[in-house]
Computed example of a mutant assay.
Amino acid sequence: MSGKQELSGGSEPEPKRFCERSGCHGGGEPAEGDSDTVSVIMPVFNASDWLDECLQAILEQDFQGRMELCVFDDGSTDGSRELVERWRPKFEDRGISVLISGHKSSSPRGVGYAKNQAVSQSSGRFLCFQDADDVMKPQRVRLQQEAAAANPTAIVGCKVCRVPEGSTERYTRWINSLSAEQLLTQVYTSHGPTVIMPSWFCSRSWFEKVGQFHEGGKGVPEDLLFFYQSLRLGGLVLRVDECLLVYRYHEHAATHSVLEQTIWDLRVDFLQERVLSQWDSFTIWNAGKQGRKLYRSLRPDNQSKVKAFCDVDENKIKKGFYTYEESKERPKPKIPVLHFRNASPPFIVCVKLDMTDGVLEGNLHSLQLTEGVHYYHFN
């Protein structure tokens, strides 16, 4: 079964919802809001351990325009909804309206559903997505609103500060070090969106054009699906180059529920759609496990475009070729294995970045290649 089939939405009936604020829309068309209003979109599920810090940070934003906080509680059992409710007077004293809705079903509907419901009750021109376990810096809304106002078809992210310090060090370094060009060229890696979902900020008009988040529930990478659709429609990807978000790592994060194979299938499909469809032939950089897995995952028409594997491992190179044993073709396809200096671009690089003490990056640089033209990373 393909990744797309696995991610099809279910037909489970809607849980009973509640909405606490006069004039709350509860899933209908958003009311007309002030053109400068920023809606902070926050799905909540059993987040009571972090909510006080998260809400205090929203309250301390230095943005001078209008704001509203839109919360959807996805069936919390730890008092999260009541905790948010206790913060309502503080927000209203600052002129920030609070919209709280949710359901009391024992079955959470998932992050995609919760985000969509929070958006549906909002009215701002701009949407600032905030996870309940993260903390925004005081200038976040102001700086991202400025960027989104100037680029209404963009998903705007930011640099992040990871806590606990040192957790997911390689991933955090990748998030914060991508160049403006790499925000578009490195969208096929296993890291996922090149600006992380908890830092997203966009115009309502662009969100509505891309469409809602996938509501398949636990295990569905709703952020990656939305991100890829935005790119298909010609959307921009921008990053404010300041740390505007304290990004918390913990074992209960929703990202841990997404299967690696699900992400792999989506990445392969998008690579074939966006890159391989434009190439007549290419070389897979890595004759090892990951390179061979990519080859086997390709459609037959793209497998036929693979003219070689390349590597630095002399043992792999000495074998001379890779035989696709699972093929039904006779004779079975045999793909040459070359030293990278004897191989020809374009390349799909299946070696993880920042894992070889700079050897991979140095080898690519030595060939004087341009990322996004002569090679793409798929790792």
Rank of each mutant, 00 (worst) to 15 (best):
S327Q: 05
K16C: 08
D265K: 05
E53C: 07
P331F: 06
F270A: 13
A150S: 15
R204C: 05
D93G: 10
F378Y: 03
L364T: 06
C19W: 13
E314A: 08
M355Y: 14
L338M: 01
K307N: 07
T168F: 11
V98W: 06
R21H: 04
R299T: 14
V187H: 01
P336W: 00
K307H: 12
V163T: 13
V71M: 06
Q229E: 15
S199Y: 05
L259A: 15
D134S: 08
H25P: 13
V359E: 15
S2N: 14
H252V: 03
R248S: 05
A253P: 03
A150C: 13
D74Y: 02
M136C: 09
R292T: 12
R239I: 03
V98D: 05
S344C: 04
Y113L: 01
F378W: 03
C158S: 15
R296L: 13
G79M: 07
G166F: 01
G26A: 13
L233M: 13
E208Q: 14
V240S: 07
R17H: 14
L245I: 06
S105N: 10
I263G: 02
G192K: 06
F340C: 11
S2P: 04
P89Q: 12
E361N: 10
S122E: 09
S11T: 14
T323K: 10
H191G: 06
G95K: 14
F213E: 05
V306P: 01
V275F: 01
L231K: 09
F63S: 14
R88G: 06
R81A: 09
E361V: 12
E6A: 08
K137F: 08
R109A: 00
Q56G: 07
D93I: 06
G288M: 02
K4Y: 13
L184Q: 12
E371Y: 00
C158M: 04
M197P: 12
S281E: 00
E29Q: 15
G65A: 06
F91H: 07
L225T: 04
N379D: 15
G372D: 03
P138D: 10
A254L: 08
L183S: 04
D52K: 11
D49V: 07
T283D: 04
L233S: 09
M1I: 10
S39T: 09
V306N: 08
D49M: 10
V258P: 03
Y324F: 14
Q368K: 11
N151V: 00
K352R: 15
G27W: 04
K316W: 01
E208G: 01
S101W: 08
H103G: 00
S106H: 11
K16E: 15
E314S: 09
E215I: 02
I263V: 15
V306C: 06
C202M: 15
K104T: 11
Q290I: 02
